[in-house]
């Protein structure tokens, strides 16, 4: 027998312990059971709190942004109204001044 064949003979596979498969199946089943069990109360509470925080984190900034947008729009509308009012006042004043000037010239 060559040295390499001797090594092959020496290092041939050993059978796994007889209860290897049973132990493995027990671990697999334990893992599946753990995955199927409902989470404990504190875990559920924690999940709810986290979900609430996430929702709040998403909703609050959106609300704030919407409020700011509306305020800006209202400000713009007020500014436009004021500009229109000023324009009207200006034209009225100009018209009045013209009337006074005309009356003064005729009398």
């Amino acid at each position: 027998m060559s040295f390499e064949d001797q090594l092959r003979e020496t290092l041939r596979q050993e059978p796994a312990p007889a209860d290897f498969r049973a132990k493995l199946m027990a671990r697999v089943q334990a893992e599946s059971r753990a995955a199927a069990l409902p989470a404990p109360w504190w875990k559920r509470r924690l999940s709810l709190a986290l979900a609430a925080a996430l929702v709040a984190g998403a909703v609050i900034p959106a609300g704030v942004l919407e409020h700011e947008r509306r305020e800006r729009e209202r400000g713009l509308a007020a500014r436009n109204q004021l500009l229109t009012a000023l324009a009207v006042t200006n034209s009225t004043l100009r018209h009045t001044r013209e009337m006074i000037r005309r009356n003064t010239r005729h009398s």
């Binding site: 290092l11 596979q13 050993e14 796994a16 312990p17 498969r21």
Partner: peptide, 15 residues
């Protein structure tokens, strides 16, 4: 699976 069991176990054992 049996063959793989022996392979995996033997490699770990010999190492």
């Amino acid at each position: 699976m049996d063959a793989n069991q022996s392979m995996v176990f033997s490699l770990a054992l010999r190492y």
